[in-house]
Design a protein around this nucleic acid. Structure first.
Lengths: 217, 217
DNA sequence: ACCTGAACACCGTTCAAGT
DNA sequence: ACCTGAACACCGTTCAAGT
């Protein structure tokens, strides 16, 4: 290693962890759209082909990035089991909302990194604590996590603030002036409520459904 | 029009409807991955740039294609309102499952084509018939459609049958042998049930939650 | 108003050749 | 075993120039 002392930026060895860390950096700085094999290769001062030794493809890389971000998802152990479920889901949703493009990949590639599994385990434990039968709990956790990912996906938009506002105006006019009777009549509630209110209602409705709906046998 | 008689394939004029029709053809034949501006341009014997006169961008094109496919989604008017809701949702899910990549785009770009709006109107009508308060009905329809799109998205996989089976084996072993207590204990239900059973349970749970959970005011 | 070719700025992935 | 450059086969979108 005689020359290592004078190699200036001291290019670090390529590792899977290093690649994922670089991916998280690029994600935070510029969004998932820039988390590409080629861009990461540039970031790591190598060629795109070299990354394929550590990562099978772009989807797998995105999944690894999401799991990394899920490290901090926890609930305050005070509070009822329902409150804790809501907290965990909210924390999960918040991570996804920060990076909605990742929420999309969570829907496609079933995530199974360590942090995601820990999240499932936590939710299963809380539902068990609440006396929810095991089968309903297992399928219910699926439903809750799916809902969180889907909600965040909906927010995934790469357009400008102005464009979004314009779209919303067009949509709201379309609904209020629709010739479809039920849509027109329900214009208020269809367009109403803050995202937070809607999310809170949805989680309550989901939990109610999960706890009271038996799995047919 | 003197030469029109001898132009052999009689290239039709470019229209938005023509572009969407071509997109549906390519989708059916080769999947959404091939529904690109460039590919469609080739199909229509023109350049990609020409399509931008009729379609703002690729996302809008995909949304138009989805709405087109939604034309046949209906319920049998016999049966209870719950049964009809289940039928409509099943029909919607089936369209999305045939083209899971479109389900993803339904999650991102809020669809608002005529057929999608008709679908919402139908569901609102059925929930009203069932006596569900308007606010719960409006937010509930959102929840039901979101769930259908999310479920279909999950199926979106472009890998081989063999690859999927291998993944499933790896996942099922990971769950059965997990060191996380609740996951290990719930391995059976977590891995059990056919997609149809799970879907049916989820729709029942969602409806139960929607009909019994009040919107706070 | 519509259409076009060419250009700009990218992608993922594979592969033969090197170390 | 790992790394690399180059290549293959694509993308979306914009723009100046034509009709």
């Amino acid at each position: 290693m005689p020359s290592s002392r004078r190699d200036r930026p001291a290019k670090p060895a390529l590792t899977r962890a290093g690649i994922v860390a670089a991916a998280v950096r690029v994600l935070r700085a510029e969004g998932l759209g820039k988390v590409t094999m080629r861009r990461l290769a540039t970031e790591l001062d190598t060629g795109a082909a070299s990354l394929y030794v550590y990562v099978a493809n772009t989807d797998e890389l995105h999944a690894a990035v999401l799991d990394e971000l899920l490290g901090g998802v926890r609930a305050d152990p005070a509070g009822t089991w329902e409150e804790q479920v809501e907290q965990v889901l909210l924390a999960y949703t918040e991570v996804l909302l920060e990076h909605p493009a990742l929420a999309r990949s969570a829907l496609t590639a079933w995530p199974h990194g360590p942090h995601y599994l820990a999240l499932i385990d936590t939710l299963l434990g809380l539902l068990a604590e609440g006396g929810v039968p095991p089968e309903q709990a297992a399928w219910g956790v699926d439903l809750l996590l799916l809902h969180a990912a889907a909600t965040a996906s909906e927010q995934a938009t790469r357009r400008s603030e102005a464009g979004v506002a314009e779209d919303w105006n067009a949509l709201s006019r379309e609904i209020r002036e629709s010739t479809l009777p039920h849509i027109r009549a329900a214009a208020g509630p269809l367009l109403g409520g803050t995202p937070t209110q809607r999310r809170a209602w949805a989680v309550r409705a989901l939990l109610r459904g999960i706890t009271t709906t038996e799995v047919e046998s």
